[in-house]
Design a protein around this nucleic acid. Structure first.
Lengths: 131, 131
DNA sequence: CTAGTTGCAAAGAGTTTGCATGGCG
DNA sequence: CGCCATGCAAACTCTTTGCAACTAG
């Protein structure tokens, strides 16, 4: 979809690549990129495009009404279930085996075709539990 | 929390009670209640209160950026996992047994403490699959 | 040179809030 | 009668869009 590789897009992708596990709002990303002079609009437009391409997932920060974006560009990440920690905001990936197991549990119990690409499980991650 | 029982609150609760399985936006609710002359603000304020009391769950309509509200006041509904159909918007409940099974799958696989109250599984329901 | 991208500022959409009025108890 | 809740409209926040300027290829 994207035809040109602009400075802004490169900066965004670089940033997302090094923060793959975090659920960030568009404004936070723009703020982090301010050194690279990337406008908020560019951030929004590129995020929308990346989302359409399936490289980024948009979720809602629980308790907030702002969208947050999470880079899922890595191959092993696509189509696999995501877990988001309510404390640290970090996103984890459930391995394919576990995800399939979970999908079939839902399928058998309710006849419901779980969409792994759209759902995010909320809870508290292993790290944050030890507080 | 609520001290008075107003005409508006009663109308809202009546409506929610008869649409317990649907994920509705505040504006849709207000529209449905227009016969009862309930203002949008009243709808928002009451929904916020109900959410705080745990009687209503707010989720995001996938692909949209508007919040939708789902009545979960029924006893058997609280704390149990919810499934939302991406086609018809209807919400289903996963029975306690299935939910526990699912929770333990996630727990064992990732050490992640799933919060059943916060997560909603997206997919396609049994009814909509037969198209 | 051509067409995709950007920045800015204005427009939108959804939601929240201030304040005077109205209504429950 | 006192206080909470409502209605209305203005305020806000986050996000999207129009358009001229810019730039990658």
């Amino acid at each position: 979809m994207s035809k040109y590789v602009t400075r802004q897009r490169r900066a965004l992708l670089d940033y997302l690549g090094t923060h793959a596990d975090e659920a960030l709002s568009a404004q936070e990303i723009a703020a982090a990129l301010e050194g690279a002079r990337v406008s908020l609009s560019a951030v929004y437009r590129n995020l929308a495009e990346l989302e359409a391409e399936g490289l980024v997932r948009r979720t809602e920060r629980p308790g907030t009404r702002e969208a947050c974006y999470c880079f899922i560009g890595a191959e092993e990440c696509r189509g696999c279930l995501h877990l988001q920690c309510k404390r640290c905001g970090r996103t984890f990936h459930m391995d394919a085996a576990g995800a399939e197991q979970l999908k079939s549990v839902v399928e058998k119990a309710e006849g419901f075709a779980l969409d792994k690409g759209d759902t995010v499980l909320y809870g508290v991650c292993e790290i944050c539990r030890d507080d």
